[in-house]
Every structure is written in structure tokens, then in C-alpha cells.
């Protein structure tokens, strides 16, 4: 009987304890939201700085994405071309294509026959009567072209070796048209490749630096906000508030900054992307994939931005309140 009473008492005590913890949890949220509303100027300033921080992060992310898409686009447009004699047999073309496909550096091969090349040329110059008449009068014929997309435009050594060593190719290669990765074209292709790598490294580096700088700005803003209220913290300590009760409202406030700033900065970022998409596209900058990404995955983008904002806010608040919470 006595054991049962003790168990009941313990259960009741635990229930009371949990109820108090829940009560404290809701009070911390209420204090945080109240402080956010009542310290309106401070809240507006902190939210504005947080918005700028998240906008920088969004811009760094979008720029990096646009850059990657653009360079991928350029890369895919840079085909290596090998030109074969006009009368090269189809079975030879097929054999060469199969041999090339065996190379690890080759991504895709597109064969343009001599007739197709002629038709394409005629089509693209359909409005130019002089060129068309010259084409009809010409006796020289178009070569068969093997358009090769490589995995890495900086690595053409495998293809060069293939051109130099493959006996079947040597027999059928057009002597009047050198493969396009030779000479000046190769240098151009290689310089594009180097520019791609450089831009990606710079993009990631600049993104990281921006994130660090903007995090420091928001950290200092929150630290200033908490510094202004250090006497409040001191008073709370002296009347017996424990650390979580003092710190909690500041964390709630920081999370509110993060949530509001995430919505504003994502909205501004997406709007800027839409507003500039036509202009950017006219400069061959691939912006549509990034727009698709942020619109299709908008809930995740918002969630990600909220998480980043809340994380920066929470870390800043924890660090800023730490010095005032020493007992």
C-alpha cells in the first residue's frame, strides 16, 4: 500500500514537473515574441540586417548555380570535330564511331553526313542567293563530320592519341580539314576550360567569404541588441531566473528575425532572378535552370533560408548572451 502511494506521489510530481516545463517553454516563446513586437525599432534593424545577410547567401548560391549552368552550357556547345572524306563508307563511319565510344573521355558522338552538312549550310544561307548559287556551282564537297562531346574539355590527349594512332581514321580523314581540337581551336577550348575551373573556384570562395562577412555583421547586430538590454539580463538573474529562461526569449527573437528575413530575402532574390532573366539570357547566361530550381523546390528553399537565418541568429544570441549570463 505504502509503495503504491509512493509511486502515485512520484507520478504526480513528474506530471507537475512536466507541466511546469511546458508552461516555461510557452512563456519563453511569449516573452520572445513580446520583446520582438515591443522593441520594434531594434527588431526592424536586426531583421533588415538578417535579410541582407540571407540575400547575400541567396545571391551567392544563385550566382554559383547560374555560373555552373552557364559553363556547362558552354562546355556542351564546344564539340570536338573530326572531319572524314566525303566518300567515307557508312560502315567505316560506324566502326570509327564505335571505336571512339570506347574512349573514356568521350561523352557523345554525333555524325553529320556530307549531304546533311550541305543541306544544313543551304538552309542557314537560304536568304543569301549568291551563296546558294555558289554552293550549287561548287564542285568541292562537304566532309563527313564526327561531332564529339567530351567529358572534360581540358583533357583531349586521349582523342589526340586516337587521331594520331588509329589506322582506319588515318586512311579516311579529310586532309583539307584538320580536327578542330588542333591548333588555335584547341587553345581556345582549353582557355574556356581553364576559365570554367577558375570561375567555379572563385564563385565558391567568394560565396564562403560573403557568408562569413554577413554572419559577422548579423552577429554584431544581435550582440549590440543584447548589449543594450544587459541590465535587463542582470535583473533577471538577480531575481532568480535560470539561464534558459533568460536566454530563451533572445533565441526566440533571433528565430523570428530569421523567419521574416528568410521570406523577404527569398522573395527579393526570386523576383530579381525573374526580372533579369531575359537580359541575362541575351548574354548567353543560363538563368532558367536556377529559376526552375528555386520555384519547383520553393518550400525547401524557404525552409533552407529559415534554417540558415535561425542558425546564424541562434549562434549569435548564444555567443552574445554568454558573457552576461555568468553567475
Amino acid at each position: 500500500m505504502s509503495t503504491k502511494k509512493k509511486t502515485d506521489h512520484k507520478a504526480l510530481s513528474n506530471k507537475k514537473h512536466n507541466k511546469r516545463r511546458m508552461l516555461t517553454f510557452w512563456r519563453v516563446i511569449r516573452y520572445g515574441t513580446d520583446s520582438f513586437i515591443r522593441n520594434s525599432w531594434l527588431s526592424v534593424a536586426a531583421t533588415a540586417v538578417m535579410t541582407i545577410t540571407l540575400l547575400i547567401i541567396f545571391t551567392a548560391f544563385a550566382t554559383q548555380n547560374i555560373l555552373t549552368d552557364t559553363v556547362n552550357d558552354i562546355q556542351s556547345k564546344v564539340n570536338m570535330s573530326i572531319y572524314l572524306k566525303t566518300d567515307t563508307q557508312n560502315n567505316v563511319v560506324t566502326d570509327l564511331t564505335n571505336d571512339l565510344k570506347q574512349l573514356s573521355s568521350v561523352k557523345t558522338i554525333h555524325v553529320i553526313s556530307a549531304d546533311d552538312a550541305r543541306t544544313q549550310f543551304a538552309k542557314s544561307n537560304s536568304s543569301d542567293a549568291e551563296t546558294l548559287s555558289a554552293l550549287n556551282a561548287a564542285t568541292n564537297k562537304f566532309p563527313v563530320t564526327l561531332q564529339i562531346e567530351v567529358n572534360n574539355i581540358n583533357d583531349t590527349s586521349q582523342l589526340e592519341k586516337f587521331v594520331a594512332d588509329n589506322a582506319l581514321l588515318k586512311k579516311n580523314i579529310d586532309p583539307n580539314h584538320a580536327p578542330s581540337f588542333a591548333g588555335e581551336k584547341r587553345n581556345t577550348i582549353k582557355s574556356i576550360g581553364r576559365a570554367v575551373n577558375f570561375a567555379q573556384v572563385v564563385g565558391v570562395g567568394a560565396g564562403i567569404i560573403f557568408v562569413i562577412i554577413s554572419s559577422l555583421i548579423i552577429f554584431n547586430t544581435i550582440r549590440m541588441a543584447i548589449f543594450n538590454r544587459r541590465e535587463e539580463i542582470q535583473m533577471m538573474k538577480l531575481i532568480g531566473a535560470d539561464q534558459s529562461f533568460i536566454r530563451g526569449p533572445f533565441l526566440v527573437e533571433a528565430i523570428i528575425y530569421g523567419i521574416i528575413a528568410a521570406f523577404i530575402s527569398t522573395g527579393i532574390g526570386v523576383w530579381v532572378l525573374f526580372a533579369t532573366s531575359n537580359t541575362l539570357s541575351s548574354y548567353q547566361i543560363s538563368v532558367h535552370d536556377t529559376i526552375n530550381l528555386v520555384t519547383i523546390y520553393s518550400p525547401f528553399v524557404i525552409l533552407g533560408m529559415i534554417s540558415i537565418g535561425a542558425l546564424i541568429g541562434i549562434v549569435s544570441s548564444l555567443l552574445a548572451t554568454r558573457r552576461y549570463l555568468k553567475l
Binding site: 508552461l23 516555461t24 533577471m236 532568480g240 535560470d242
Partner: peptide, 9 residues
């Protein structure tokens, strides 16, 4: 506030 930090209802 003094009562809230002590967990009073």
C-alpha cells in the same frame, strides 16, 4: 515575472 520564472500557473 518573478512568479513566472518560478513556474507558477
Amino acid at each position: 515575472f518573478a512568479l513566472e520564472i518560478a513556474g507558477m500557473t
